[in-house]
Lab assay of single mutants.
Amino acid sequence: HNLTITQGKLFFHYNPKLCLSEIHKMEEVSGTKGRQERNDIALKTNGDQASCENELLKFSYIRTSFDKILLRWEPYWPPDFRDLLGFMLFYKEAPYQNVTEFDGQDACGSNSWTVVDIDPPLRSNDPKSQNHPGWLMRGLKPWTQYAIFVKTLVTFSDERRTYGAKSDIIYVQTDATNPSVPLDPISVSNSSSQIILKWKPPSDPNGNITHYLVFWERQAEDSELFELDYCLKGLKLPSRTWSPPFESEDSQKHNQSEYEDSAGECCSCPKTDSQILKELEESSFRKTFEDYLHNVVFVPRKTSSGTGAEDPRPSRKRRSLGDVGNVTVAVPTVAAFPNTSSTSVPTSPEEHRPFEKVVNKESLVISGLRHFTGYRIELQACNQDTPEERCSVAAYVSARTMPEAKADDIVGPVTHEIFENNVVHLMWQEPKEPNGLIVLYEVSYRRYGDEELHLCVSRKHFALERGCRLRGLSPGNYSVRIRATSLAGNGSWTEPTYFYVTDYLDVPSNIA
């Protein structure tokens, strides 16, 4: 807008934040220059609390790290170098490059900038070799853009010569660093050979998330399962459950009422301010606690030095998902009996873990797994792929695949051998790939016309006998059925096997 004052003059007093240069501009645009008398524009009460600059400061050096910015700028000295009290560095987070010096300023003089007072450097006698002032900004957020400017702080001049310097606002972004852990990993099994893994992005990506790394490792069953005799009275049979499938998407929606109208769909109840505040506090606490764990609990591995020492970490090797089922080394339970199943799973520490690289999504279907087997899954978020990966501390989750139908069934015939004193040795093959492992066998036998009897055969007993022995049988026709019990439950009964026990007292003698 054009402003013209045809008559009258300007009068400025007691404006401590208004620089004289701005008042002189007002004289020019209003056409009143030359009308004012000496005392109409006070030299001592206008701009006496402001830094009124008329020179431009330029930054000469900028260096960044993930949490620091090192700045240096060209030296500046007023005509009387004693008038320079120091520099004021202003900075704040700036997602967009549209910041002005006066953003967030209120009537009390406060604003949204963080201000650092910096002492002037030592003055050199040689004007050509003056030290460049600077400042190291610490405690910054990774991968965050900051708006920065600097200006001088000078003393009051009796001659009211307006001098000083100020830089333009520059924008500097800190470097990326390792992201925080992925949030809320959930693993479920939808079949006997697959596990579905879902997660949420890290709360602090500290860069642009480029991919996720998912490692999985087959877990050995508890050692007590191999040692305890679950045929003993009072000892509860062990059981394991597989990871249940995901709930429906509708039930997972946030901010939804727990109660549904019987007449149909209901609208979600909005969260109160107290609920939102509580969630923010919980989120802040979780982030602080995660940072504490990362800094205190997890110790970084030592990389190899120039002395030739090897990095103890196993090298990563990509495998196809079809090879995942046989990740671990199978060892027989008892070496003397080769027909026992290889369900003991000690994992070799030198073995390469299978892994998958996930790009542009937060889910993965891990296939080719062994049925009813526990897996430990390790999830890392990465925001750099080359020249070397920059990934987060791992988040861990466990899951067990679903049982395989008929995996616990005894394959092959049940054979028998009759000894003296009416002892019958029953023999059968253990299931080759049971659900988890076989903890015991149930032997059901009966003599024709009598009630059915049951015998429990422990895992250890089966390994020693290759089956079991029935003792003290009365003469007669017998039928026997056997079924295995694994961590997933009972298998199917075998087809009945028949044998006849004679009275050993009636056996004919070869003595003449």
Rank of each mutant, 00 (worst) to 15 (best):
S203G: 09
I209M: 05
T210L: 10
T210H: 11
Y212S: 06
L213Q: 14
V214S: 03
R218T: 10
R218G: 11
Q219L: 06
A220S: 10
E221V: 06
D222T: 08
E224S: 04
E224P: 14
L225R: 09
D229P: 14
Y230W: 09
C231T: 02
L232P: 12
L235G: 05
L237F: 05
L237T: 09
L237E: 13
L237N: 15
L237Y: 06
P238E: 07
R240N: 09
R240E: 15
P244W: 10
P244F: 10
E247R: 11
S248L: 03
D250R: 11
S251R: 06
N255K: 12
Q256V: 13
S257Y: 08
S257F: 11
E258W: 13
Y259F: 06
A263Q: 13
E265A: 12
E265Y: 08
C266R: 10
C267H: 02
S268C: 08
C269I: 08
D273V: 04
S274E: 07
L277T: 03
K278N: 12
E279V: 03
L280N: 15
E281H: 11
E282H: 04
E282A: 11
E282Q: 15
S283V: 10
F285N: 10
R286E: 10
R286L: 07
R286H: 05
R286D: 02
K287H: 08
F289E: 05
F289K: 03
D291I: 11
D291W: 14
Y292M: 11
L293R: 15
H294Y: 03
V296W: 15
F298T: 10
F298L: 15
F298S: 07
P300T: 09
R301W: 07
R301H: 13
K302A: 07
T303S: 07
T303I: 06
S304M: 15
S304D: 13
G306M: 14
A309L: 14
E310N: 14
D311P: 08
P314Q: 06
S315R: 11
S320W: 06
G322D: 15
D323A: 07
D323E: 12
G325C: 14
V327R: 08
V327S: 07
V331I: 13
A335S: 10
A335V: 10
A335Y: 06
A335H: 09
A336D: 12
F337D: 04
T340G: 03
S341H: 06
S342R: 14
S348W: 09
S348A: 04
P349V: 04
E351P: 09
H352C: 10
H352L: 11
R353Q: 13
R353A: 01
F355W: 08
E356L: 06
K357T: 12
K357R: 09
V358M: 15
K361Y: 12
S363C: 14
S363A: 09
S363R: 09
S363I: 05
L364E: 15
L364P: 00
V365E: 06
S367L: 10
L369G: 02
H371C: 05
F372A: 09
I377G: 03
L379G: 00
Q380R: 04
Q380A: 04
A381S: 07
N383C: 04
D385G: 13
D385L: 06
T386Y: 03
T386H: 03
P387S: 09
C391T: 11
S392L: 01
S392M: 01
A394N: 04
A395Y: 09
Y396H: 13
R400H: 14
R400V: 10
P403A: 13
E404A: 02
D409Q: 09
V414A: 07
V414L: 07
V414R: 02
H416C: 09
H416I: 08
H416T: 10
E417F: 13
F419V: 14
V423I: 07
L426S: 02
M427D: 07
E430H: 10
K432F: 06
K432L: 07
E433F: 13
P434C: 03
G436S: 15
G436V: 13
L437G: 02
L437S: 01
Y441L: 01
Y445N: 02
R447N: 04
Y448L: 07
E451Q: 14
L453R: 02
H454N: 01
H454F: 01
V457Q: 04
F462H: 12
F462C: 02
R469E: 09
L470P: 00
R471P: 08
L473N: 03
L473H: 01
G476F: 00
N477I: 09
Y478I: 01
S479P: 00
R481L: 13
S486D: 02
L487S: 11
G489I: 04
G489R: 08
G491L: 01
W493A: 00
W493T: 03
T494F: 01
E495R: 06
P496Y: 13
F499M: 15
V501L: 06
T502E: 05
L505C: 06
L505H: 09
V507H: 00
P508K: 02
